[in-house]
């Protein structure tokens, strides 16, 4: 069964966000082995897991759609610079508009419709009550810049990477739910530069191999990978911009509240070649699951415990888990029969 968008819940202040039983079941659990290690864990972005799976469609719309769109509005209202496109990325932005509108209208015809008559396009988003007609490629025919316009209708963050000189450059994006990185600071960086602070992987040649793989991706052959961290409270906007407001939550985790307060944050990252601009669309779809919901799946509980227990110190620090990692491991131990 597919999960339909439900009423708006919050990712801040009173944190009313919650997952239904169906949402827990379809959560993209990231740990394939007991021991956590780095790898270039990319695979073709093809349907997997059948109807209702988070991998059923190119873009995943789930029960949190309205909540995430409301959260994005709040972020952009306060900080419009969290959406940014360098002038040379205009064509890539339109590529992205097409890719998203076409796939949403094909995969979710009850929610979205697109009628194309040459360059005259009619778009309807029934979930957000949006109905617009515009001229494809003409940014003045939309009520706001194309990246901003389509980004406000999609769950997850989006970056557009310009490909030149055998490298990928972070030259556009709408980033309102990042796992602690700043688009404003990282804008214009090369692939290795924006991964600069990541520990351990540089020495292992991970980024050289990943970049080689990515720049060779052709149109129509998107790839995906999962990334993860832990977030205290169901906070979508864990941006550096707001770190001075949410950082203190990392000291609020106790043995009593760890199950409800700590969330496994998973990013389903998809890279897709854009046909006109040759840019890469990099979508970062974030899922949040509280540990107490996670451990309702016994297999996940055991694996989560072992992955957390074997997490190398540099990664614990890099991911910002230092202050509560031990509490998480202790909590998870009760679900692992080996202990």
């Amino acid at each position: 069964m597919r999960v339909a968008p439900k009423e708006i819940q919050s990712f801040r202040d009173d944190f009313t966000y919650s997952n239904s039983a169906e949402a827990i079941e379809r959560f993209p659990f990231p740990f394939a082995e007991d021991e956590y290690r780095y790898s270039v864990n990319m695979e073709p972005h093809l349907p997997k897991g059948g109807e209702g799976s988070a991998y059923e469609h190119f873009l995943d719309i789930d029960e949190h759609y309205l909540s995430e769109m409301a959260e994005r509005e709040l972020v952009l209202k306060e900080m419009p610079h969290r959406c940014l496109a360098m002038p040379h990325m205009d064509l890539a932005c339109w590529d992205m508009v097409e890719r998203i509108m076409v796939s949403l209208s094909e995969d979710y015809p009850d929610y979205f419709s697109l009628i194309r008559d040459g360059d005259h396009w009619s778009w309807e988003n029934k979930l957000l009550n949006i109905k617009d007609q515009f001229t494809f490629g003409d940014s003045s025919s939309l009520p706001m810049p194309p990246l901003d316009y389509i980004g406000r209708q999609m769950q997850g963050d989006f970056a557009l990477l310009d490909q030149r000189e055998g490298d990928l450059f972070l030259d556009a994006g709408i980033i309102t739910c990042p796992a602690d990185w700043s688009l404003a600071f990282d804008a214009g960086m090369s692939f290795k530069e924006w991964h600069g602070p990541v520990p351990m992987a540089h020495g292992e040649g991970i980024f050289e191999r990943a970049l080689k793989y990515l720049i060779a991706i052709p149109v129509g052959k998107p790839v995906r990978r999962l990334n993860w961290t832990l977030t205290v409270n169901a906070r979508m906007d864990t941006s550096p911009e707001k770190y001075h407001e949410w950082g203190h939550e990392r000291t609020s985790v106790t043995p009593e509240n760890v199950g409800e307060k700590v969330y496994l944050r998973v990013e389903l990252q998809v890279l897709d070649r854009m046909p006109r601009s040759n840019a890469m669309m990099f979508s970062i779809r974030t899922y949040l699951l509280s540990l107490e919901d996670l451990v309702t799946n016994k297999e996940w509980a055991v694996r989560m415990h072992r992955a957390m227990k074997t997490l190398p110190e540099p990664l614990i620090n890099y991911k910002g888990l230092t202050r509560f990692h031990g509490t998480v491991v202790d909590y998870l131990a009760q679900f692992d029969p080996v202990n």
């Binding site: 602690d180 990185w181 960086m189 290795k192 530069e193 924006w194 991964h195 600069g196 602070p197 990541v198 520990p199 351990m200 540089h202 020495g203 550096p240 770190y243 950082g247 540099p314 620090n317 890099y318 991911k319 910002g320």
Partner: peptide
């Protein structure tokens, strides 16, 4: 924050 590392930050010139 994402700044603790073993081998140094590669974006540093």
């Amino acid at each position: 924050m994402q700044t603790e590392q073993l081998n140094g930050v590669v974006s540093k010139p």
